[in-house]
C-alpha cells in the first residue's frame, strides 16, 4: 500500500498473527449461537459471560502486542484526539434514530493511518466514550471488537483514489454499519428474548433454522436502527469524506510519522566560537 508516507502504527508480522487469532476468537464470541455444537453450554447465560471476559483478555493481548511494537507520541496523541472527537460526537447521534456518527471518522482514519491505527482507534474510541458517558459494561468488549474490525478493515481496502475511493469508503461504511448492528445484536440475542418466544435462541436447532430466527429478531429489533446507521455513515463519507480525507492526509504529512532524522557530526575539533562565545561584531549605528 503506497500511501506516500508510513502508517501511523507499524504492524509487524507477529502483530498480524495476533490480530488474526484474536479475530478468530472474536468471530466465535459473536457467532457462537450458530456455530457451537449443541449441548456445549448448560445455560444460555454462560456463553455471553464467558466470551465477554475472553474478549476483554484478547483485546488486552492485541493492544499490548501492538503497543510493544511501538506507539510513539505522535500516534498516541492522534489516537487520543481522534477518540475524543468520536467520544464527543457519539452522544450527539446516539439519541436520534440510528444516526451513528462514530463510524465515518473511524473508516476515514483507518483508511489514512493504516490498519494498525484503525484497530487501536476502534478500541480507544469506544472505551473513551463509555468512560465519558458512564457506559462501561459487558457489552463494551463486543463494541470495541466490532469497531476495531471496522477500523482495521478500512485500512486494508485497495488503494483507489478520487471518486472511486469515496464510493468504496461509502459502501464499506454502509456495509460496516449493517455488520456492526448484526454482530452486536447477536451478542445479546441469546438472553434478551424470553426463551419461549418464537424468535428466541433455541440451543440445538440446525443452522438455517437458527439463522432464520435470528434474522427475524434482528428485523424486529434493530433493522431500522442499523439502516439509519448505514445511511448516515455512507452519506457522511460522501459529503464530508473528500475534505476530511484531505485533512487527515495533510495531518499525516505534517506529523511525519517515524521521521527520517539524521545527524552529521561537525568536522574537526570543537570550534573556538562555541568554546568562547563572542557576539558578532556589532557596529553601533549613529543617529
Amino acid at each position: 500500500m503506497n500511501r506516500g508516507f508510513l502508517a501511523a502504527i507499524s504492524v509487524r508480522r507477529r502483530s498480524v498473527l495476533t490480530i488474526a487469532m484474536a479475530s478468530f476468537i472474536g468471530l466465535i464470541a459473536f457467532g457462537w449461537p450458530f456455530a457451537v455444537a449443541p449441548g456445549t453450554f448448560s445455560s444460555t447465560q454462560t456463553p455471553p459471560l464467558m466470551f465477554g471476559v475472553l474478549l476483554i483478555l484478547v483485546l488486552a493481548v492485541v493492544f499490548a502486542e501492538i503497543a510493544d511494537g511501538g506507539i510513539d507520541a505522535k500516534a498516541i496523541a492522534m489516537l487520543g484526539v481522534l477518540s475524543a472527537i468520536n467520544a464527543a460526537l457519539r452522544p450527539l447521534g446516539g439519541g436520534t434514530a440510528g444516526v451513528e456518527t462514530v463510524f465515518f471518522l473511524l473508516v476515514l482514519a483507518g483508511r489514512v493511518f493504516g490498519p494498525g491505527f484503525g484497530f487501536a482507534l476502534g478500541c480507544t474510541s469506544v472505551f473513551a466514550s463509555a468512560l465519558l458517558t458512564g457506559g462501561v459494561g459487558p457489552w463494551l468488549a463486543y463494541q470495541m471488537f466490532g469497531c476495531a474490525w471496522i477500523g482495521m478493515l478500512a485500512g486494508l481496502l485497495p488503494p483507489l483514489r478520487g471518486k472511486a475511493e469515496i464510493a468504496m469508503l461509502a459502501l464499506f461504511g454502509a456495509a460496516g454499519g449493517y455488520l456492526f448492528g448484526f454482530l452486536l445484536n447477536l451478542s445479546f440475542w441469546p438472553f434478551s428474548v424470553d426463551p419461549a418466544s418464537s424468535i428466541a435462541y433455541q440451543p440445538g436447532l440446525p443452522l438455517a433454522a437458527q439463522l432464520h430466527r435470528y434474522l427475524l429478531f434482528d428485523a424486529a429489533t434493530s433493522l431500522g436502527w442499523d439502516t439509519g446507521r448505514a445511511v448516515t455513515t455512507a452519506l457522511a463519507v460522501v459529503i464530508i469524506g473528500p475534505p476530511a480525507l484531505a485533512a487527515f492526509r495533510r495531518a499525516a504529512r505534517r506529523a511525519n510519522f517515524q521521521p527520517a532524522a539524521s545527524f552529521q557530526p561537525p568536522p574537526g575539533p570543537r570550534s573556538p566560537a562555541a568554546a568562547e562565545v563572542r557576539p558578532r561584531e556589532v557596529t553601533t549605528p549613529g543617529l
Binding site: 507520541a73 505522535k74 511525519n256 532524522a261 539524521s262 545527524f263 552529521q264 557530526p265 561537525p266
Partner: peptide
C-alpha cells in the same frame, strides 16, 4: 529537532553534557 520533526542536523548541540544526537 530533528528527532521529532525529521530533517538533518549537522554540527553538535550539547545540553548539560548530553549530545542531542
Amino acid at each position: 529537532v530533528p528527532h521529532f520533526t525529521g530533517g538533518t542536523l549537522s554540527g553538535r548541540v550539547v545540553v548539560a553534557g548530553r549530545d542531542t544526537s
